[in-house]
Design a protein around this nucleic acid. Sequence first.
DNA 1: TAATTTTGTGAAAACATTTGCAAAACTATT
DNA 2: AATAGTTTTGCAAATGTTTTCACAAAATTA
Lengths: 342, 342
Amino acid sequence: MSDNNSKKADIISVAKAAKVSASTVSRYFNHPELLKNSTRRRIDSAVRKQGYIRNRAAQTIHGIRSGTIGVLVPTIDHAIFAEVVQAFSDAVAEHGFTILLASHGYNAKQEYAVLRKFLEHRVDGVVLTGLEHDEAVFQLIESQDIPAVLIWNHSDSARLPCIGADNRRAGQLIAEHILDLGHRDIACMFPPMVGNDRAQDRRMGVMDTLAKAGAQVRAEWQLETIYSISASKRDTIKILSNEMRPSAIICGNDILATGALYGAQACVLGVPQDVSIVGIGDFKGSSEIEPALSTVRLPAVRIGQEAGRALAHAITQKESSIANLHCLPELVPRASSAIAKR
Amino acid sequence: MSDNNSKKADIISVAKAAKVSASTVSRYFNHPELLKNSTRRRIDSAVRKQGYIRNRAAQTIHGIRSGTIGVLVPTIDHAIFAEVVQAFSDAVAEHGFTILLASHGYNAKQEYAVLRKFLEHRVDGVVLTGLEHDEAVFQLIESQDIPAVLIWNHSDSARLPCIGADNRRAGQLIAEHILDLGHRDIACMFPPMVGNDRAQDRRMGVMDTLAKAGAQVRAEWQLETIYSISASKRDTIKILSNEMRPSAIICGNDILATGALYGAQACVLGVPQDVSIVGIGDFKGSSEIEPALSTVRLPAVRIGQEAGRALAHAITQKESSIANLHCLPELVPRASSAIAKR
DNA sequence: TAATTTTGTGAAAACATTTGCAAAACTATT
DNA sequence: AATAGTTTTGCAAATGTTTTCACAAAATTA
């Protein structure tokens, strides 16, 4: 039981209680093999009795690692980022790291400010979401030379090491799937694109592929819908209520697709008989929804794990180079898409 | 542009460049009003030129706040915890705090270990999920006397200040709703209960209410299903495929309810005509799903915000007492539940 | 028994800051 | 121009730890 009558338990008070010097207590934690068994036991009991907890801040100012990694996502409250963060956190926790987590809400100024805060805390590494960032952000990272990883998106020409899936390719895959099924009257629903290179890339992948096949998307079928099931349901109902309606809706992510599915059901339209609906992401639940959602799998857990592993390795081995890693997106055709009726 | 030829930019190198003493640079950050305009400008330019970033670790060992708050959830990868964490993070970020986030996966030993790690980092406060924790966890917090809040669940007899919803009451509300609709053949589906007082409380609320009304739940209709749409869909299909089937299914949370909904659809049963399905939580999407889910709203965002506000206040005002706050659960009847057929 | 090696421990310097106090530099007043 | 009052700055001590170096004690070898 800890004894808190001695206000502050620092290394010195422990040393006194154990009748050794502070250096010996330090060694007890950092190089216990150098101590005699009996001293180790004495210190052990003193530590316990005083409820002493080491002060990482004091260690950190010696240039010793802080044991923290800064993770910066647009928002935590997204099925998909939550999943990535969880996987990342687990991966680095194995190596003793704790994460400092913050979100910037797709605001570039915010991102820079948070990054600075991370650096004040002397994080041992940072993770940013997406490939594109303010020039100031890149410069800050480079000037501190601390390992950094960009997650979620992938491109060979990224300015920093990136571990993620090629979102352009994901868009291409789902568009090809819809084209292969014979659809030509296609609607597209994407989230707002500002500060979101993942969404931009997906959209570009979809649009380019459709255009190349001569299946231009008419302007009124190009929707920009905020990331929310309710907004997507609403917009889908609007578009499906016209007499002229698309035979397929390509959604920028599975949340939008889920809303679209509900919207079609609300319009008493059959999916996929009346309209095919597809997403991107393969979120949890996408395979169980009725009808099961056709989508493109982006391996969130794998991305988080690999990023965590790579960063932890770079930090502990002081090997500053992290290799790009492309986690391939993969088409997952399910029940929500079918051959177009003529 | 920062000039990184000078390897390490510390307060002293900045001081030299600005031709002042280190103390003056320190004051530049902490009490700028004490400096003459001209010196302030000189330091400003030196800071910029060197790309100096303050070292919070060095400040922290002076007993100055670390500016971090430890947040400990069972898992980040839950719609609901993600939402709470986001709200909490935003609330404390306003006061300059960054969160250290970790998960324990419903493992009590883990929880203690993570808490210790938080304390090594000298967090200014901690947030734990739920009311019940190892005795060692409570003792550790008490011995450090640092502000702590238990979130998500609520009880007047909690050992530490708690901000959350009474989950027992939530269970009671949804059970009453189902009873009011005339149901007596009721199935219950709850997640595993170990280390999860929220689920335990909800279940108790439901079971007690049903029992009091004489609507005992037969053993084979008491399901324990892991938190996952697919597991819930599977279990629901199993239970609905028997000729003897319940007229209502009460689920411990909206994810399970969503899976149950899909399961009913897969069995070609109408909801709510053939079977009523209800959840607890009012997750995002629960109001848009077809049919819209009857559930009990637990105000996640509010809980996160209030907890953040309370903790930030306790830390900055050194006012160690945080008041309990009960965020009332509220029945939200929607389309997925209806009067029982006789 | 003496000489040598190994092991265990302590003293002091270093780390990057903050802060109380006192000295120096300005301003205003006469 | 001298004095008093005010503002601004620097010095030195303090913070909680790790690390290097040195030395004594113990163990081993000759």
